[in-house]
Design a binder for these strands. Structure first.
Lengths: 402, 402
DNA sequence: TCAATTTGCTTTTTCAAAAAACAAATCATC
DNA sequence: GATGATTTGTTTTTTGAAAAAGCAAATTGA
């Protein structure tokens, strides 16, 4: 049991291929990696010795493809989930959540605590995260090897982990990385990520119908604010200074449903939850909560239907701008605001096709599959992805080292 | 002189490093590549034998860094431009242009011919390109090795090279790849690229102030239509079906300066050249050409100044949407429409800062440095980039093989 | 003149991957 | 049930790229 181990390039590639495939025989893996079976055999052996891969218990069931299987059946090899763990956290407006996923990508630990985010002190949030991290680690195997912690936060960050603007939390120019380093110590590497970006990865990382590389996805996170994450070739596009995806601030119209003297007509002043409720209040002359609005919409009340229709039109307009710019293969609507979409799906699609050039491929529009834990899980998946990609060599640390 | 040669991974990496650096000693190259000097020596030797690299004639001038140089000076090694050639073509609305660049990235051949693009037959364009290709090849050394031809076209393409929509040319669902294969034969690989994308690469490929990987660039090509190209990490983002960057069709306002009943208020109906002239005609009650407009603007005529101001306001609005989505480090304005920008630069920047969130980094806005040959040169650079990148092994063909 | 430094080359060693060969485990067919 | 075809997994041998180690050459600085 080595304190810290490093993987050679082809070992990392083999792990990534196993993760993609779920499980495969040595021969299939060799074909996948473009190596010979002999090399792959050694590769699997060393991965198994490192505790990162293992032969599947239900051996000799190698009926993966529906072909007329002939020849000696292979022994399925899969990732050993216990080989490594990745921590993800989400500092939200109402909750702080910490999760752990294992090397196989499965959620293995979770802890959360209510948090009055708006106007809170960053130090409190960091303290809570640290406590939750301890709770989550307690749920993992004794000698669990941790690769680090990735924290999803609303707002945008610079490359060093200084959050300049988290308007919703009331934080400005806070150096979260330093705060975390102080509380968690030097042995726990901490990364920071925009929450919409984290959700985007959570939504796409485990979906791989055929080839993740081709499927560019745009994830639109709709809460009171609107954020975006763009996944291209399976990787997150962050932009210079990691601020890409601030699509809520995109100028779209002249006014917006809610008043913003400074920057009127931004995307989120039309399609954020606040904006939708403001529009409903304007039409129906009655202020309601979001849940009440959904109920009214389901009941077919005219003010709600009208407001949802207006919301859908502006959503389509914003999506059209994004689609022209990015041409994603699919758009995924996330955040609780997406519950409105099913009621206006056909209208939104109709508007979209009028906005887009004739012949331009219209992406599919889907609803999020990750729940409220999405940002935390996505943050953890980002570490997982980094570990299984070639760029940086994979470093493991013992949990005990803390 | 091998008919066709393939490079090993580290040879490709060494070539790419030499291209980045311009020229460097074996020892400096070894540090750059993370290899030992002994390995690098062999690498350079094999590259030299393949005719792809050579020691620089003005030997022993190794004063590249301004340090207190001590020790034995290195012999500078540089790319041998004659090692390979890359052809790029541009089928424009008024011209067809073909250029050749060499392995060192230098333009080594050029030929062009007027072309009445609108309403023309695709077959004619292909025939002209083939003729110009022969002209350009005649300007190259006898035994020039060609890696292929990349053709930049206005409009958008699918992954196989079928151009679905080139509205400006009046082409629909034309399979250009097949047409080229028929005329140029199977020994000349032909690729197709969107013209704005090609310009984007032309604008960024040779600029590398510090690190190209970090500098995401958005190139906005302003002619009658408006196209966009986005370079992230030195690579073009194409989108699913290669249609990303159709930013001219982005819905931005309700009407636009020129009337479009189908899709009113698109970006290019505000900032395309036609749109600008329409605005000027509306204000000044007088129709002028673009050159006349520029003269009037330079003379400070009020109608022109007013129209340019309106143009700048919508340009800022469109750029703001793009910047929120992509967060590029710099925006490069290309196409002849960019000549208006210097007159309204301060206004555009002021508008931009009101549209963007406080604290959000405002990208620099620059004017294109590549002239009218930009699309053709960019197309050729794309082949160059592919040859010097790891993804596909580098295949060379003799020009004589045609 | 002489030490210090850096370069470029040669020789030897290491090690990941390929190549070749073969036993084992299955299916298809007679 | 026997036989051949097919595929898998392993072992042994070979290849070849890169590292390691060592050294002469070319420069600066004292």
């Amino acid at each position: 049991m080595p304190e810290s181990s490093e993987l050679r390039p082809n070992e990392t590639r083999a792990l990534a291929a196993l993760f993609r495939a779920g499980a495969s025989s040595r021969a299939a893996l060799a074909r996948d990696l473009g190596l010979t079976r002999s090399t792959t055999g050694i590769l699997v052996q060393s991965l198994a010795e490192a505790g990162l891969a293992r032969e599947r218990s239900d051996t000799a069931i190698a009926e993966q493809d529906g072909e007329g299987r002939v020849g000696r059946p292979g022994i399925l090899v899969e990732i050993d989930g216990d080989g490594a763990f990745f921590l993800g956290a989400y500092i939200g407006v109402n909750w702080i959540i910490v999760v752990a996923i294992d090397l196989a990508g499965k959620v293995r630990g979770r802890a959360s605590r209510p948090f009055a985010g708006a106007g809170s002190a960053p130090e409190d949030a960091v303290t809570i995260v640290a406590a939750l991290v301890d709770e989550v680690i307690a749920q993992l195997p004794r000698d669990a090897r941790l690769s680090g912690l990735n924290v999803a936060v609303p707002g945008f960050l610079d490359a060093d982990g200084t959050t300049y603007h988290a308007v919703i939390l009331g934080w400005h120019r806070i150096n979260l990385a330093t705060l975390f380093a102080r509380v968690l110590g030097p042995d726990m590497p901490v990364l920071l990520e925009n929450d919409a970006n984290a959700v985007a990865l959570a939504e796409t990382y485990r979906r791989r119908p055929d080839d993740q590389a081709s499927g560019d996805s745009l994830v639109v996170l709709i809460e009171n604010g609107v954020g975006g994450g763009f996944i291209s070739g399976g990787r997150l596009h962050r932009g210079h200074l990691r601020g890409a995806g601030e699509i809520g601030h995109m100028p779209l119209g002249d006014e917006g449903f809610i008043h913003d003297a400074q920057r009127p007509g931004r995307f989120e002043t039309y399609v954020g939850k606040d904006a939708l409720l403001a529009r409903h209040a304007y039409i129906g002359r009655r202020a309601v909560t979001f849940d009440m609005f959904l109920a009214a919409l389901a009941a077919g009340e005219s003010a709600a239907v009208k407001a949802a229709g207006d919301w859908g039109r502006w959503l389509a307009r914003g999506l059209a701008a994004l689609i022209c710019t990015l041409q994603p293969e699919r758009v995924i609507l996330a955040g609780s605001g997406n519950e409105v979409y099913p009621f206006v799906a056909t209208q939104v699609k109709a508007f979209l096709s009028t906005y887009l050039v004739e012949g331009y491929p219209v992406p599919s529009i889907e609803l999020s599959q990750s729940g409220p834990d999405g940002p935390a899980i996505g943050a953890a998946f980002l570490l997982h992805q980094a570990a299984l990609s070639a760029d940086p060599p994979f470093q493991l640390r013992n949990a005990a080292a803390r």
